[in-house]
Amino acid sequence: MKFLRLSNSKKETAPPLLLFQITPREKAALLAVLQLFPVLDASHHQFTNPPQPARAAEQRLLQESMSQLQDAHQRKLDQLFRGEEQFFPVSRGELRMALTAAQLEWLLQVLNDIRVGSWVRLGCPDLADGAHLKLSGSNAHALYAMHVCGEFQSIFLEAVT
């Protein structure tokens, strides 16, 4: 997948669209990984470091707020990828994906939820520091999801910067 350009929408009042070139295989990988959402457990979010009993109310509020946000993201995801409107073919084996800046922004959040959640399921390894993972049938998909999300995030970030 790669970012092509910012394109004005056909409707004058509609926001401009960010256009991406994407292959059917990449599209399948993106949709497959998005189906994993949500991955991160609400207990991951900590208001203070270390946790403080005096801040229990704020801690609870933060976790509730993040759970509600996940629900909202889920509804948006269902809406956005329910049909095929985001994707349109331009040639054999090549598609375009169109997203508004706002859609791209929450898609970044969704992908990072999957990425960080998968990393937590792997035991929070520092892969850049040469941490070795004992891969098994149960955790290999988490490593795959983490990397796929990272790839899509990098391309989306390129588009917004």
């Binding site: 970044l108 990072n112 990425r115 960080v116 990393w119 929070c124 390894p125 520092d126 892969l127 850049a128 520091d129 983490m146 990272g150 995030q153 990098s154 970030l157 910067t161």
Partner: peptide, 8 residues
């Protein structure tokens, strides 16, 4: 943390 991308 070792998971969030620097650009992100």
């Amino acid at each position: 943390d070792p998971v969030n991308l620097m650009d992100y």
